[in-house]
Computed example of a mutant assay.
Amino acid sequence: MLRRLASLAAVLCAFTLAPPALAAKPKIAFRLEYAPPTPAEDCPDAEELAFMLAGEFGYMVVRTDVSPVVRVEVHSVRRSFEAELWGPALEDGAEAWHGKTDTQGTCRELAYDIASLVRARLGPGAWGREAPPAHLAAPPEVEVQRPELHPVALRLPESLALLVPWTSAFVESSTSNAEEAPVQVEAGLGAAVSPYGLPSVAVGGNGFLGVRWRRFAGFAEVRGLITPASGIGERQIPGRATTWTGSALPCFATKHVDACAVVSLSQLQIDLGPGRAVTGSDGFSVGFGGRINGHISLSDRFSLLGYADINMQLRSIALVLDGTVPDWRSPLLRITLGVALTANFSD
Rank of each mutant, 00 (worst) to 15 (best):
M1S: 15
M1H: 12
R3M: 10
R3N: 14
R4F: 02
R4E: 10
L5Y: 12
A10D: 12
V11L: 04
C13H: 13
A14C: 09
T16S: 15
T16F: 03
L17F: 11
L22T: 01
L22I: 04
A23H: 03
P26M: 05
I28S: 11
I28H: 00
A29P: 05
F30P: 07
L32Q: 00
E33D: 15
C43P: 04
P44Q: 03
E47S: 04
A50D: 10
M52D: 09
A54L: 07
G58N: 08
M60C: 00
R63E: 03
R63Q: 03
D65S: 07
V69Y: 05
R71H: 11
V74N: 07
H75W: 01
R78C: 10
E82C: 08
A83D: 11
W86P: 03
G87M: 00
D92P: 04
D92Q: 15
A94Y: 01
E95K: 05
A96W: 01
W97L: 02
H98K: 06
K100E: 10
K100H: 02
T103V: 09
Q104S: 14
Q104P: 03
T106P: 00
R108C: 02
E109S: 13
E109A: 15
L117V: 05
R121G: 00
G125T: 06
G125A: 15
A126V: 06
A126E: 00
G128H: 02
E130P: 03
P133C: 10
A134K: 02
A134E: 13
L136S: 04
A137F: 01
P139M: 06
P140H: 13
V142G: 05
R146N: 12
P147S: 14
P147A: 15
H150Y: 08
V152D: 07
L156V: 07
L160H: 07
V164N: 14
T167C: 12
S168A: 14
V171C: 12
E172H: 08
S174R: 09
S176W: 06
E179N: 09
E180R: 10
E180I: 09
A187S: 12
S194L: 09
P199T: 15
S200L: 04
V201H: 10
A202M: 07
V203A: 14
G207M: 00
W213P: 09
R215V: 11
G218L: 03
A220H: 09
V222P: 07
G224P: 08
L225I: 09
I226D: 13
I232H: 12
R235F: 05
Q236F: 06
P238S: 14
G239P: 03
R240S: 15
T243C: 06
P250I: 00
P250K: 06
F252L: 02
A253Q: 12
H256W: 04
V257Y: 08
A259E: 02
V263S: 11
L265S: 13
S266V: 05
Q269Y: 13
Q269R: 15
Q269M: 15
L272P: 04
P274F: 10
G275W: 00
A277N: 13
G287H: 01
F288T: 11
F288Y: 10
N293H: 01
L304M: 07
A318G: 13
L321W: 00
T324P: 12
P326G: 13
P331F: 06
I335D: 05
T336L: 02
T336I: 07
G338H: 13
S346F: 04
D347Y: 03
